[in-house]
Design a protein around this nucleic acid. Structure first.
Lengths: 257, 257
DNA sequence: CTAGAGTATTGATTTATATCAAGCTCATAG
DNA sequence: CTATGAGCTTGATATAAATCAATACTCTAG
């Protein structure tokens, strides 16, 4: 089945590139993502149907209605999943960091948008071939299942936040969650970082879509947190957590995205 | 491994009963739940570690912090999953209908409560034995994966509702979702029913925990929908949908729980 | 160095929902 | 059949967040 594929295959966009095995060795997806339970032979097979692809910040990766042509694994950058109501109201459902998998297996559509928040690099897999692979490789399905369970846990944490938290609690929760995720992600990639300083990769508008608030309310909560001495903000995007205790107290509960 | 189990096994509460094969034949879990892709032999094996158990409306099934001792599949009745903030604020995360599976595989805890909304009958599986089974049976894991993906879809639909809908839209969405789910569920079980009449199994308080509102707001929206002629209410719990079009318009978008 | 666009903050006002407070309905037990 | 209590509705008021509006910051391109 795999030798059907070559560079001319119409399922691959011209913007894509082959992956070589040395790339896999350094990859977070290989380390702890969907590839982490594959043996070398299977990984090599999978690589034949895989192409690397870059997206610029803001670009749409998957639409909410177009038939799903491919799945993807995030190698670097951050994506968001979102839904839009007919009148334009938008809700972000979650963020994807390396080594997350994106795409709805066992359905022919996503029911949400996936778009790049920062510049993003992904490995893409043509849908039909990947599905055959998935069927034949229980260890791959097992790993995807685990990743999906984590996503479900995260979605449920955010439901509690969306339904029951005040604006300031939401913002505090988001900041802590980001501090944690960016620290872990950067550490894994060997990027020097510390737990209290980070660049918030989201605009205020993206934050408000995530928290179910408006831009103005988000902005006011940031100012409030600054006034209370819990955080410092420079250049609008660079956050320093000055009082993690205090922030956690405000956030109340949640720990992870 | 399975012959270790008998009625005296301490992992089984005294309130439980054996399952016989004729029961499975009529069961929704067998028809379209986690058992649906098991062959007869595997099903018979699984049945040896399975016990039936009843819960009364309101009873707690799984707690959010106690180590998970068993998993369960819902045979009849409705359960809710919920989270509680330290100060008591509560958010319902979703409802479980037959043939849903409950319990967080691959972790030793649920991070939420599961409780019976109506009287409920479940099949329970001791955690450690079920895990062995799961590892050995890819078709079972596959089915659980699919069920989990559906739960994730549902969770994300509700995130949009929680984050971006007004009170009246939330209530309209809930009613449509219930009409649909109860109709499907009852039809499957051969219970006579129609799509426009149903008994709402939730109290106003449970509804408000689900929608991220207060009891009073929920009540007001019901009254409003009645005044607009979209629904009829008798005895507070019996709902008649008088204008599905209008209700769907109000709800805006979502279709399923 | 400046203009301009995009992004963020801050203020004034409105509005949806929460909160507080009665009173009502319905099922059940005496 | 009536008393009781849990669950529900309705009204009055308070409040958090949305909306509307103006101004300020930050980066880029010229």
């Amino acid at each position: 089945m795999h030798n059907k594929i070559d560079c001319q295959d119409e399922r691959f966009s011209p913007k894509t590139n082959h992956i070589d095995s040395s790339e896999c060795q350094l990859c977070e997806v290989r380390a702890c993502g969907m590839c982490s339970e594959l043996d070398t032979a299977t990984l090599n097979d999978l690589r034949k149907i895989t192409r690397s692809r870059d997206y610029k910040a803001g670009e749409l990766i998957f639409s909410d209605d177009a038939p799903l042509q491919s799945y993807a694994a995030i190698k670097s950058g951050i994506v968001k999943l979102s839904k839009i109501l007919p009148d334009g109201r938008q809700q972000t459902l979650g963020l994807g960091f390396p080594p997350d998998f994106i795409g709805r297996t066992y359905k022919d559509k996503n029911t949400y948008f996936v778009s790049a928040i920062t510049n993003v690099t992904v490995c893409t897999f043509p849908r039909d071939l990947f599905n055959e692979y998935l069927k034949a490789t229980p260890s791959l399905e097992h790993r995807l299942f685990e990743l999906t369970l984590n996503e479900l846990d995260a979605a449920r944490d955010w439901m509690l936040m969306l339904g029951r938290m005040s604006a300031i609690e939401k913002v505090a929760t988001l900041l802590l969650s980001f501090a944690d995720r960016l620290y872990k992600s950067n550490s894994l990639q060997g990027i020097p970082c510390d737990e209290t300083h980070f660049e918030l990769p989201l605009t205020r508008s993206e934050i408000s879509d995530f928290l179910g608030l408006t831009i103005e309310t988000v902005s006011r909560q940031f100012s409030l947190l600054k006034k209370k001495g819990l955080i410092g903000i420079t250049q609008q995007r660079f956050i320093e957590i000055l009082d993690k205790e205090g922030l956690s107290l405000l956030a109340g509960q949640l720990k992870e995205t």
